[in-house]
Simulated scan of single mutants.
Amino acid sequence: MKDQFHFDGSPTAVVQKPLALLGVGLCATTLAVMSPRTAAAQDQVWSSVTANGPVATDSRWLVWFDGHARFREGGETLDTTILRPGVGYRVNNRLDVWVGYANVTNRRPGLDVEEHRLWQQATYPIAQVAGGSLTGRTRLEQRFRDGDDDTGLRLRQFVRWSRPLGGVPLSAVVSNETFFALNDTDWGQRGGFDQNRAFVGLAWAVSPKVRIEGGYLNQQIDGGPAPDTSNDNLSLAAFASF
């Protein structure tokens, strides 16, 4: 089973055109709406593990888990933890669909901020570009905060390009994820562009089913009436398929 970021071949026309156009359109819109006024960059360290695969050999039913620990102040203080399990179904060898739950805790002075999310996503290939594979993930989230009744709806579009480097078990990786809030909530979500995460780095194939990625991730967060926030992050991630 290939993980969600490794697919071979080109998608069917039915899947390829709307999803590819969605990814390109969202990335283009991000460049248009991001404001040049940004607050001072924050240095952060992001770490994560992701595992997914079929529930049994040759099964179309899939399981997913990813966990995250993010540290602010140059990696000294725990900032955010995320636990995100899910289940999926392999529609064909070019499209997987998923549903799941995420628990997100933002560590803050005083009371932590806890968020619950239901999520649905599709993972798919897009095209072979410049000797590498371009893949995508489209995710819809329903966000809930403890003590608040409003539900925040958010769309996230992720695209990833990777290309093996000849003679070594390494690949060059470039990815981008754009977030759009689809409504306003009493607890602070504002409709429109929410944030963008752009990554560049290397992936090391530890084995056919395990890889480790490391590199630089820039996070631009819309500040609304305040200056936008720009975070410079060191990103370390491990991925396993089974």
Results as ranks from 00 to 15, higher is better:
56 A>F: 10
61 W>S: 08
40 A>V: 06
46 W>N: 00
32 A>L: 10
61 W>V: 14
162 S>W: 08
230 S>L: 02
59 S>G: 02
152 G>P: 08
198 A>G: 03
17 K>H: 13
186 D>T: 14
66 D>F: 06
127 A>R: 13
27 C>Q: 08
137 R>Q: 06
109 P>M: 04
36 P>N: 10
241 S>Y: 05
141 E>W: 10
14 V>C: 01
182 L>E: 09
217 L>C: 09
220 Q>Y: 09
53 G>I: 07
135 T>H: 02
43 D>A: 15
189 Q>L: 14
143 R>T: 13
239 F>I: 01
153 L>P: 04
224 G>P: 04
174 V>E: 05
68 H>C: 01
76 E>H: 13
144 F>M: 11
86 G>A: 07
227 P>C: 01
233 N>W: 03
78 L>H: 11
134 L>D: 03
150 D>P: 09
133 S>I: 00
203 A>P: 02
8 D>M: 12
58 D>E: 11
78 L>V: 11
106 N>T: 12
60 R>A: 14
175 S>L: 06
103 N>D: 15
233 N>Y: 00
25 G>W: 05
188 G>Y: 02
110 G>T: 05
65 F>I: 14
122 A>T: 09
139 R>F: 04
228 D>A: 03
8 D>K: 15
70 R>M: 13
5 F>W: 14
219 Q>R: 04
40 A>H: 07
33 V>N: 02
83 L>P: 04
20 A>N: 05
168 V>L: 10
30 T>P: 00
23 G>A: 11
42 Q>H: 11
59 S>Y: 08
48 S>T: 08
207 S>C: 04
192 G>Q: 10
20 A>D: 03
145 R>Q: 12
6 H>V: 14
119 W>I: 06
79 D>Q: 14
187 W>T: 12
156 R>L: 14
127 A>H: 09
23 G>V: 07
14 V>D: 07
155 L>M: 12
158 F>S: 05
61 W>L: 14
149 D>G: 10
171 S>L: 00
160 R>S: 15
27 C>F: 06
5 F>S: 07
24 V>C: 01
192 G>T: 12
88 G>I: 05
78 L>K: 12
235 S>D: 15
30 T>S: 11
93 N>P: 11
133 S>T: 13
209 K>L: 06
181 A>Q: 07
96 D>P: 04
146 D>N: 13
205 A>E: 12
189 Q>R: 06
1 M>Y: 08
191 G>C: 11
133 S>C: 06
124 Y>Q: 10
147 G>V: 07
223 G>E: 00
84 R>E: 15
123 T>G: 05
15 V>G: 01
87 V>A: 11
119 W>G: 07
5 F>P: 05
221 I>W: 05
195 Q>I: 01
151 T>W: 02
238 A>V: 15
189 Q>M: 15
153 L>M: 12
241 S>K: 11
233 N>L: 09
221 I>R: 03
23 G>E: 08
77 T>N: 11
18 P>V: 06
203 A>D: 09
132 G>A: 05
21 L>F: 09
85 P>S: 02
